[in-house]
Design a protein around this nucleic acid. Structure first.
Lengths: 339, 339
DNA sequence: ATACAGTCTGACACCGGTGTCATAATGTCG
DNA sequence: CGACATTATGACACCGGTGTCAGACTGTAT
């Protein structure tokens, strides 16, 4: 036997037609039980596997989803945002559970992601994962919509299509962080992240935080805010600039754990004690949050559930059914950095 | 225009045959420059993308690699070994660089991984990633060999086929760890990992470690060894059992960083100071190694290079050429846990 | 015996490309 | 002008399955 066995080979050995083999292997009720058993047996002996390309071509679907990861570029390309990695894990498992394969692809935020995975029938739908909105992000999403490409987004919203987004309740997370600091009587708060709508997720976290303090009559002044993207380095430098500007605060809310970790490092280097002098709260609950010293209080996003919802919603869309906007509840994890 | 455009649609608009369209799109030198331009233009306008299934079916290859991740089962399924995640990142990037797609799949170690990705023409080759050897691992690899499936392994060896393995020089890494502890005059060493050939990678690390100490006339007694799989929890409990047995040591070598992190926790809980009382050295250099307190001295595996080599070697095999066994040099990263 | 429903199977078109072969059109040279 | 190489194109089989349709066969009611 040269090359791989085909359904014709099985047909030959079983003494039936290829059509019958195809039906038997898919357990069609049309075939006789005895025939079905014989075909399965021979298939197993020949180590036969259905050719996915032929099958997909005929049925016009691929049983495959594509995960497109958009990342802020970092100096060290091999380091991936741990939060996304965690999502990747849960998405992979969710796909497996639903019997779908997963194609993974990193997209440089600058590059022209043609997102041709679905057009080329490599995948039935796309999962878009990444912070914020990049150059042309919305217009590219619009192209996807125009092409009737099925996709769901994590975090970032799609104009007029809230149903395509699965996201953590970032605003609610910001509220949790603020309430916790109010409980701890630490209301002279700084914020590090991106308080513009350039990065919608970070902005929502900030708004929830700010609004909650405001309700208590406390303002977060512009002086106490610094921009950062979600890397340790960026958080470190943003915090240093606050310190250099002689900004005073007794609590700090970071838009992500990586930022918070960088912030703690900058604070400690400046001789500021955490949590004694400054309470720090992060966002995401990445693994490292439990390892840093002091361990980091943070707002947890349930990545397991998130991955499951992304896959579920996408599959629903692919089936042509409607989905509703999905907002996942955040949860405060209190650790040493704020007590 | 309902549905997606096909090459026939383009042929129609361009006033040429479908054959010519196919050739033009692949920039065959056979087609006239002017025709080629017109076809490309129309294709772009129609948002045409080659149907991968049709193309793959005809050419009998998929431009896709499959990554199969084997993990020791943990209680929290969503947490993936960070070292593997790091590998995943570098493999993804390496694939993209070579113009290949990547299918990612988690395999429960217990489940029957038919590894049918290649048989079903979903992927041209497999990358196997996981510690150690599981039930039937070698026999399953043998099945792959029998089926002429192209694959490469990380770490674990394949009987009689060293060329199919890309791996860190685990033995050399163990040597580095031992030499470092000798330099620090901490030679009363414990080892936590798996000092049996059940887990070949861990065993090699141990051998390099043990042999180096032995050359200095120092024995690592069985009493000072405890088994653990690569989780923080497992490292924690293994260390507690050493402490409970009243085993004395002033240095500890852990077969992985996760084990080391669990070990440090157990030591600290028992009132043992790290590094003052016990020096700790890990293996992998996962991100958390830099975050824990004290930060962890460890043997770094170059995951970027490893991912690249895995992909390169696999592609070489797919081209039908020979590859040689690949061993990557480890590097010692000295941090606070050993000084 | 005839009609008819139910069960099972084979023939065949089809999915959308790719590769081969034949051939038309044009140019070149003796 | 005929022989021949060169260039550009179309026709067509093919990859390996899936879905439709027709029909053979069996059993049961009329």
């Amino acid at each position: 036997m040269k090359g791989k066995a085909t359904s014709f080979d099985i047909a030959h050995y079983a003494g039936v037609s290829q059509s019958t083999v195809s039906r038997a292997l898919r357990n069609s009720p049309l075939v006789n039980e005895e025939t079905r058993r014989r075909v399965h047996e021979i298939a197993k002996k020949l180590n036969y596997k259905v050719d996915k390309n032929a099958s997909n071509l005929r049925t016009q679907q691929s049983s495959t989803l594509a995960l497109l990861l958009f990342e802020d570029p970092t100096e060290d390309e091999s380091q991936i945002n741990p939060f996304f990695l965690s999502m990747l894990g849960s998405i992979t498992r969710a796909c497996a559970k639903e019997g779908y394969d997963l194609l993974v692809s990193f997209q440089s935020t600058s590059s022209d992601w043609h997102a041709d995975y679905e057009d080329s029938h490599r995948a039935d739908g796309l999962i878009l994962l990444g912070y914020g909105d990049y150059i042309d992000y919305q217009s590219k999403l619009q192209t996807l919509l125009d092409n009737h490409t099925k996709f769901v987004c994590w975090g970032a919203t799609v104009d007029n299509r809230p149903d395509l987004t699965v996201s953590c309740d970032n605003y609610g997370g910001g509220v949790l962080a603020a309430k916790h600091l109010i409980d701890m009587v630490r209301t002279d708060c700084a914020f590090i992240g991106d308080a513009s709508d350039h990065s919608p997720e970070f902005f929502a976290r900030f708004k929830g935080f700010r609004d909650t303090l405001k309700a208590k009559g406390i303002e977060v002044s512009d002086r106490k805010m610094a921009n950062a993207i979600s890397t340790e380095d960026s958080g470190y430098h943003a915090t240093r600039s606050l310190i250099a500007n002689n900004v005073k605060f007794n609590a700090l809310f970071a838009a992500s754990d990586l930022i918070a970790i960088g912030a703690i490092k900058a604070l400690q280097e400046a001789g500021v004690r955490v949590p004694h002098d400054v309470h720090v709260v992060g966002f995401d609950n990445i693994a490292a949050a439990g390892y840093v010293s002091p361990s980091l209080t943070t707002v947890q996003q349930n990545t397991t559930l998130a991955g499951q919802m992304l896959v579920d919603n996408l599959l629903t869309l692919i089936r042509g059914e409607a989905v509703t906007s999905t907002l996942l509840p955040p949860k405060l994890i209190i650790r040493q950095s704020s007590r």
